[in-house]
Design a protein around this nucleic acid. Structure first.
Length: 355
DNA sequence: TATTCGTGGGG
DNA sequence: TCCCCAAGAAT
């Protein structure tokens, strides 16, 4: 074991964070936490993790739940394919692995939602195998320690960093090693303003010696994000509201929303809404007062959504032409349908004003 | 290989 | 207000 790794493990023995999923000998708990932590902060995950384990304490409980129940518990965490994949994977574990999560990284990677990082994390943390796990923290720590000048997310950078993570790994202590690097990255070796003065590895750190820690890891230029104007219809009929279910995959897959869509060039807002409702539901709407304006930033685009109060013409029966499903629901039933953030805001405003 | 996928907090 | 980006995976 190199002195660098020795210093790292010594520091971890003193400064390891106490997290709800640590020290729990249940591979399922490790799995759930790792999937929730993908691209998501620890502080955000903690309450979701605890609620999830209350709703679905075992793989079997998760496998038996409906996708709607699963999405409802996941609502607000984002990247909903994680929830859909976790659900499917639980059913595969029950059906193909006798209810026990496999320990072999290759078998883990065959499960939906488990990639190279998560397989290594589960294998090392839950099963004690000597597997590296390169996440954003470890990528940053290693890029600084060894002054990696290739962009960290480039193929060449990825190769070097995975190689380093595997070379440094102390046999028999992969779990602590991986956790230690992640804790160091999360608490001291942070993306901005790293606290190099308190870092237990500063005398090993090439970037620190060169004074370039703020420029490591090298990041690729990011594309500009487009901005879309969209509309949504709050359609009321005899005390019920019309909501539609999004397609099973893709953005907010399987979640419910107030129907509508993207504004086309040269179109005004009511025309956009009438066109979208006709395309999706095969009916024409009468567009009334503005209900509200909502802004939201997704990862790779932004939207401004204009919601309007609408009614269907007499006798019109909407059909699920371009949506997975549709439902007329009472106000009190809205909280039970999983939704993304914007549509949840609309539903909440609807509840607050009592229809 | 490059895009697509949410949301919330901090600077 | 805006930009950054956080324990990545799938296609």
């Amino acid at each position: 074991m190199t002195s660098l790794v020795l210093d790292l493990l010594d520091w971890y023995a003193q400064h390891a964070r106490s997290l709800p999923w640590r020290g729990i000998p249940d591979p399922y708990a490790v799995w759930v936490s790792e999937v929730m932590l993908q691209q998501t902060r620890v502080e955000t995950v903690i309450p979701y993790y605890q609620r999830w384990m209350e709703h679905f304490p075992t793989v079997s409980d998760l496998a038996q739940a409906s996708q709607q129940q699963v999405l409802a518990v996941w609502e607000g965490l984002g990247y909903y394919s994680r929830a859909r994949n976790l659900h499917r994977a639980a059913q595969l574990v029950v059906g193909q692995h006798g209810g026990q999560l496999p320990s072999d990284p290759r078998a883990l990677r065959d499960l939906p939602g488990i990639g190279r990082y998560t397989a290594g994390a589960i294998a090392s943390l839950a099963f004690g195998l000597d597997e590296p796990a390169l996440d954003g923290n470890i990528r940053r720590v290693l890029a600084r320690l060894f002054n990696i000048t290739e962009p960290a997310r480039s193929p060449a950078g990825e190769r070097r960093l995975w190689e380093l993570a595997r070379q440094l790994l102390p046999p028999g202590r992969a779990g602590d090693y991986n956790e230690a690097l992640m804790d160091l990255g999360a608490t001291l070796c942070t993306p901005r303003n790293p606290d190099c003065g308190r870092c237990p590895l500063n005398h090993h750190c090439q970037a620190y010696h060169l004074g370039v820690q703020d420029e490591r890891p090298v990041v690729l230029a990011k594309p500009v994000v487009p901005h879309y104007t969209v509309t949504a219809a709050v359609i009321e009929r005899r005390g019920s509201f019309l909501i539609t279910q999004r397609p099973p995959d893709g953005l907010l897959g399987g979640l419910w929303e107030f129907p509508g869509g993207k504004l086309h060039p040269g179109e005004d807002l009511p025309a956009c809404l009438q066109r979208e409702i006709c395309e999706e539901l095969g009916v024409s709407v009468n567009v009334g007062d503005l209900f509200g304006i909502y802004r939201h930033a997704y990862t790779h685009f932004r939207v401004t959504l204009h919601a309007f109060c609408c009614h269907l013409s007499n006798g019109q029966q909407p059909q699920p032409v371009q949506v997975q499903d549709l439902r007329w629901v009472k106000l009190a039933e809205l909280p039970g349908f999983p939704m993304g953030k914007i549509d949840r805001q609309i539903a909440t405003h609807l509840l607050e004003r009592g229809g």
